[in-house]
């Protein structure tokens, strides 16, 4: 893999992420791509814990722990402070979970990107509030078990399409990325870094603990999310120009669901229905990219 060039590490071992944590892998790749001239804003999420208890830090770059709902606002402030100091070189990155992005942090994020604040907002998506014990979020996919959607009350609502919500703000750059596709991820991080204004990257980050999957499967499952079109890899420039980065062959969503404990209760009929939803989303994306199915 070409990533050998990115030999430098900006993370330390000894963090307390769960074995096989996708969010830890996502961070490692991003920092390799962005380099040490980066300040990170970290609203409450699993990463608040992974980053280490005071006085430890697992990152070799400065990071600011912030309140859960403030990722967009704090980053705007950090950017303004750097500007006042005349530092145009440092990249400001908000690193937030799906809860902190899709739900509680959404207004701060929407406000910041509406002002086209100059920062990168990364949402690492593990599809629930994992840090506090697997509560559902608006990112939790249709069909999933969580502690707040237990038993037969599994989530029967669709996952919010966050990238489209950001695209609607007409920001300069919005993209999806996935830990199983490091080359694509690193390219997008570097591309985002080279663009001015608000940039948003939605990273799929598997969670062995919350998804009830074996730790060694977290990359495999992340890869399948792309292969099945459940999590397509694409990027949108200026809210208009869509590029689909990966066109999978026909894989069935069924195989992705079968591997995860959080979907164990789904029947064949449910899975057929989910397949239709995925197909529908994919066709919509194709249409937006001007590539009719």
């Amino acid at each position: 893999m070409e990533l050998n060039a990115l030999d430098q590490e900006f993370m330390h071992s000894g963090h307390v992420g769960c074995p096989g944590c996708g969010a830890a892998i996502a961070m490692r790749f991003f920092l390799k791509a962005l380099g040490d001239k980066t300040i990170m804003v970290l609203p409450a999420c699993c990463w608040s814990v992974i980053a280490g208890p005071y006085p430890q830090s697992t990152l070799k770059i400065p990071l600011i722990h912030s309140a859960f709902e403030t990722g967009g606002a704090v980053a705007s402030g950090v950017r303004a402070a750097l500007d006042m100091k005349g530092d145009r070189e440092t990249t400001v990155v908000t690193w937030a979970g799906d809860g902190g992005t899709f739900d509680i942090g959404f207004q701060a994020l929407s406000g910041a990107v509406e002002r086209n604040e100059d920062f990168i907002y990364v949402c690492y998506d593990n599809e629930a509030y994992m840090n506090t014990g697997i509560q559902r979020s608006s990112s939790t996919p249709y069909g999933a078990w969580t502690t707040t959607t237990p038993g037969t009350d599994w989530k029967k609502l669709r996952k919010k399409n966050i990238v489209e919500a950001l695209v609607a703000h007409r920001i300069p750059y919005a993209a999806t990325a996935n830990i199983a596709f490091p080359e694509d991820l690193v390219r997008k991080a570097q591309k985002a870094k080279s663009i001015k204004g608000s940039r948003f990257i939605h990273v799929y980050a598997s969670c062995p603990t919350g998804w009830r999957i074996p730790s060694e499967m977290s990359i495999k499952i992340a890869r399948m999310a792309v292969q099945t079109n459940i999590f397509p890899l694409y990027e949108v420039e200026d809210g208009l120009r869509y590029t689909i980065n990966y066109k999978p062959k026909e894989y069935l969503v069924r195989e992705y669901f079968r591997l995860q404990g959080r979907f164990r209760h789904l029947t064949d009929k449910d899975l057929d229905q989910i397949q239709e939803m995925v197909n529908e989303d994919w066709e919509l994306l194709l249409r937006k990219a001007g590539e009719h199915a």
Partner: peptide, 17 residues
């Protein structure tokens, strides 16, 4: 502002294995 000053490498997470 409390500011961290050491790395996480003191945590020998190998003991979880």
């Amino acid at each position: 502002m409390p500011r961290s000053y050491m790395s996480t490498e003191v945590n020998k997470t190998g003991s979880w294995r």
